[in-house]
Amino acid sequence: MLVRIVKLSFEDAHIDTFLANFETVKDKIRSFEGNQLLELYRDKHNSNVFFTYSYWNNESDLENYRNSNLFKSIWAKTKPLFNAKPEAWSVDKLAILD
């Protein structure tokens, strides 16, 4: 399983726009082939910083999503809202303790 972590930082005036858009697309992302989990987090001390965590079956599923019309339409609406360049990491989960 591949875990994708993306850090997103927005202009304060655009946070509501981002959250409204995420609400409309989250189920589409989650139901995209190969996606196993989608989570959105907000930094406790910097309210304009968000993180998405998504779990993918493999790297090709993530790449299929990143090359999809769905991703392109989401990115077109999200990119103008940033106040810093997004950062992304693809990682392998090594351990989980419940």
Rank of each mutant, 00 (worst) to 15 (best):
E39H: 02
W56H: 05
A95F: 15
R66N: 13
I15H: 02
N69V: 12
S68H: 06
S90Q: 14
F50Q: 01
V6I: 13
D16A: 15
N21S: 08
D12M: 10
F50K: 05
W56Q: 03
K7E: 14
W56A: 00
D43M: 05
A76L: 11
Y65G: 11
S73A: 14
L8A: 04
T52I: 13
L38G: 05
A88C: 10
S31Y: 00
D92M: 11
K26L: 05
T78H: 07
I15G: 00
N64C: 15
S60A: 09
N69T: 15
N48H: 03
D12C: 03
S60Q: 13
M1Q: 14
N35I: 07
S9K: 09
I5Y: 06
W56I: 00
F51V: 14
S54C: 05
F71Q: 10
N46P: 00
R66V: 12
N35V: 06
D43Q: 06
N48C: 01
E87L: 09
L19R: 06
Y41W: 08
N35L: 02
K77M: 10
D16H: 13
S68N: 10
L37G: 04
H14Q: 07
F82W: 05
D12N: 08
F18M: 00
A20H: 08
E87P: 03
N67G: 06
Y53S: 05
F32G: 12
W89N: 00
E23V: 01
Y53W: 07
L37C: 07
K77E: 14
E87N: 07
Y65K: 08
A20W: 01
E59W: 02
E23Q: 04
F10H: 05
A88F: 07
K7Y: 10
W56M: 02
R4T: 11
S68C: 03
E33F: 07
Q36T: 08
L81W: 02
L37P: 02
E11I: 00
A95C: 12
R66G: 15
K72N: 15
L94A: 14
F22Y: 03
I96W: 04
L70R: 14
M1E: 08
P80Q: 02
N48E: 04
F82E: 09
N57D: 11
Y41L: 13
V25F: 09
Y55K: 14
S54W: 01
L2H: 11
P86E: 05
K28A: 14
V49S: 03
F32N: 10
N46Q: 07
H45Y: 09
N83W: 05
K7P: 03
R66L: 15
S60M: 08
W75E: 04
E59Q: 09
I74F: 03
V6Q: 10
Y41F: 14
W75A: 00
F22T: 05
Y65S: 13
H14Y: 10
I15R: 07
K85S: 09
T52D: 06
F18V: 01
